[in-house]
Design a protein around this nucleic acid. Structure first.
Length: 679
RNA sequence: GGCUACGUAGCUCAGUUGGUUAGAGCGCAGCACUCAUAAUGCUGAGGUCACUGGUUCAAUUCCAGUCGUAGCUACCA
């Protein structure tokens, strides 16, 4: 078998927060896959880094009273320690705030520019005059213009789910300084993504992505792609764009380049790795990115397009996973299920989580539920009761009857061969990231090993005179089967494997080495390979993680609002008081026009008598021309919260009956007076 | 509203191009065993494969719709 050269990455964690169990699904999945590749004899390199740039880093550092550099240094240390303690074995864990990353970002930008893939134009944005900086949507807060909810972010309202521009907020203020933001224009650089539409359409369907991910991206690719804004104005923590003083690369531009720079940094101290060999166009090496479903567009649209533009190779595949839910629900701080890596490690063994994730992971994008009752049962039963038990129940007899030495031949060589023959099948599962299927097969064989021992009942033979050799034979069979099973699980349980290795007294646990059983072989000392998960420790962890009552954040309004939407409180029958809340008015159409660029909408200006004039958009174009309505009376819901739409504000709703295709606007008689209440 | 997924035993999940009585592990009940970190083995109960229609000789599997879940998105006022 020729050795594959593989480079693997996990998404770069952002340097402003702790690693939690959701992150770990990705790093553990990747680590297990990399360890598996290496155990199979391939040359697989795993690099990652902290993602260190952007406004959030600046603000976080400011809040802590330190510099961004100090912040990212500290967080880098914390992240790295967390990963190490979870037995995640990076070849390099670097930082995007590095010389290599600056050089590569500049190089890629330069090549994009030379290729004509960079556009320039002005962008209007909210600006904090006090702080002297532009504000992304989430740094502007204010009162929702639709429903009046206070303290909403600049892009949408968590209460009524309206969308709007930051400066539409009433009483808008900068989250950074509290100042009232103003609109300001500035020149931005754009990456001409549309130029790569054809390439991306093909690339996303060429086996690089799971089908469901490719389907998702087709939503963008079948429409018009937009140019991607890749610059930010000073002050910004990041890399300044060459020949553009005061302009910085947007954090998402240099973040994926961090994969390259981490590898480049590694190459400088590893003679067996060559940067160009892995990254030049047409490279024969393999490149895989493991990411979560939230950042698919960055990795499967922008990133391959940028690589293409800059004349580098593209990834062989982007492997996307779903989110982790805890006990069936989203991770939540108030429920104590927002569990950081460190909190977990304070109470539980990392290999429990490694095994549990492996036992449930597949190659799909579905979310994975971490159910702690299931977790305890699954780990204890599979790993301790089944797998470890095989070694544990056999080793005593071999010690007693043969001084810890295995028999010179196996009583059931065919059975051993049958086990080994499963190697390829299991390898295929792991290769395809169907860890759960692989683990299931391993455990099914563990069952067979226990059945065998049960049927042979060495403890009975041990009581019979002169059957010592038989006892040793049966238990040697058991130990050898254990060795095979464990070898397969080495990528999942590296610590346990190391302990078992010293018990088995072997130099390594590679897939190749199990072809031959251990015969006439002296075993080392047996020590318990893994302790059971203690349910109480799990409970303690959840308890420790719950915030103190005082700092408990209120339940997210977003979720509440959503629930109400789906299961409206409104009963089928409403009482009179509910009805009168709706302010229905006679309104006269004084102006009615087509809306340029809109397929369904008409723009309608209404005279509502005492309430003055109102402007609404109405989705009735399919059945009405502007002149059909001009001068007619219609029914307006006058106290409906205004809503920002693509083409402007809509300040009410015109009643109509029918469905999308057959619309009849409700019209009061001509004689009705504009502004009259309808009741 | 639209789009993309998903909805199979109490729990976690398999179900290959539609083909007989729908599988596994855990959990549960009973029995056996006592070497093993109270582990193991055997037997068993448990499912209108979300719901409703359709295509077909035949549908968990294909199609349409409904409901529910997750995410994205909007020209819903």
């Amino acid at each position: 078998m020729s050795q594959r050269e593989i480079l693997v990455t996990s998404a770069l964690p952002y340097a402003n927060g702790d690693i939690h169990l959701g992150h770990l699904l990705e790093y553990l999945q990747t680590d297990m896959w990399v360890r598996f590749q290496n155990a199979r004899g391939n040359m697989c390199t795993y690099v990652c880094a902290d993602d260190t740039h952007g406004t959030a880093i600046t603000l976080r550092a400011e809040k802590e009273g330190i510099t961004p550099e100090q912040l990212i240094d500290r967080v880098h240390g914390e992240h790295y320690q967390d990963f190490q303690d979870f037995l995640i074995k990076f070849d390099n864990y670097y930082s995007t705030h590095s010389d290599e990353n600056r050089e590569l970002a500049e190089l890629i930008y330069k090549r994009c520019k030379e290729g004509g893939f960079i556009a320039t134009r002005d962008v209007k944005q909210a600006y904090d005059p006090e702080k002297g900086m532009f504000l992304a949507d989430r740094y502007v807060k204010g009162t929702c213009p639709e429903c009046g909810a206070e303290d909403q972010y600049g892009d949408n309202c968590e209460v009524c789910s309206a969308t709007y521009a930051p400066l539409d907020l009433k009483d808008a203020y900068s989250v950074v300084s509290g100042a009232k933001p103003v609109e300001k224009s500035s020149e931005h650089f754009f990456f001409k993504l549309p130029e790569f539409q054809g390439m991306l359409k093909e690339w996303t369907r060429s086996g690089t992505l799971q089908p469901e991910v490719a389907n998702k991206l087709a939503e963008w690719l079948d429409g018009e792609l937009l140019e991607w804004d890749i610059s930010r104005d000073a002050p910004y923590f990041g890399f300044e764009i060459p020949d553009a003083p005061g302009k910085y690369f947007y954090v998402w531009l240099d973040a994926p380049i961090g994969y390259m720079s981490s590898f480049k940094n590694l190459c400088e101290r590893r003679a067996d790795l060559d940067f160009d060999h892995y990254w030049k166009k047409g490279s024969t090496t393999e490149l895989y990115h493991f990411i979560g479903k939230d950042i698919v567009n960055f990795h499967a649209l922008f990133w391959p397009a940028m690589l293409d533009a800059a004349d580098f190779r593209k990834p062989n595949a982007v492997n996307v996973h779903g989110y982790v839910t805890i006990n069936g629900e989203k991770m939540s701080k108030s429920r104590g299920t927002f569990i950081t890596a460190r909190t977990y490690l304070d109470h539980l063994d990392p290999e429990y989580l490694r095994y549990y994730y492996a036992a449930k992971l597949n190659d799909k994008v579905d979310d994975m539920d971490l159910n702690f009752d299931d977790f305890v049962q699954r780990v204890n039963t599979d790993v301790v009761n089944k797998l470890v038990n095989i070694a544990s129940r056999c080793q005593g007899f071999i010690g007693k009857f043969n001084d810890g030495k295995l028999a010179a031949e196996l009583p059931e060589p065919q059975m051993y061969a049958d086990f080994v023959a499963k190697s390829e099948e299991i390898a295929e599962r792991f290769e395809a990231r169907q860890f759960s299927a692989g683990v299931r097969e391993v455990m099914a064989l563990a069952d067979r090993a226990n059945e065998y021992i049960q049927a042979q009942a060495p403890w009975k033979l041990a009581k019979e005179e002169g059957k010592g050799d038989e006892v040793v034979a049966v238990c040697s069979q058991g130990i050898n089967l254990f060795r095979v099973l464990l070898t397969w699980l080495t990528p999942v349980l590296p610590n346990m494997a190391a302990k078992a290795q010293s018990f088995l007294n072997v130099a390594d646990l590679n897939w190749g080495s199990i072809e031959q059983p251990l015969l006439d072989h002296q075993l080392g000392k047996f020590e318990p390979l893994m302790q059971r998960v203690d349910g109480k420790a799990v409970a303690k962890m959840l308890e420790a993680n719950k915030p103190a009552e005082a700092e408990k954040p209120a339940d997210k309004p977003k979720k509440k609002a959503k629930k109400e939407k789906q299961a409206p409180e409104t009963p089928d029958v409403i009482d009179f008081n509910d009805f009168v809340k709706v302010d229905l008015r006679v309104a006269k159409v004084v102006k009615c026009d087509h809306v340029e660029g809109a397929d369904k909408l008409l723009s309608v200006t209404l005279d509502v008598g005492e309430l003055g004039e109102r402007h609404v958009f109405s989705g009735i174009k399919a059945c009405y021309q502007p002149e059909d309505l001009l001068g007619k009376n219609v029914v307006l819901v006058a106290n409906l919260a205004p809503r920002k739409m693509k083409f402007g504000m809509s300040e009410g709703m015109i009643l109509a009956s029918g469905d999308d295709k057959n619309i009849s606007v409700v019209m009061p008689p001509e004689g009705a007076k504009p502004g009259d209440r309808i009741s």
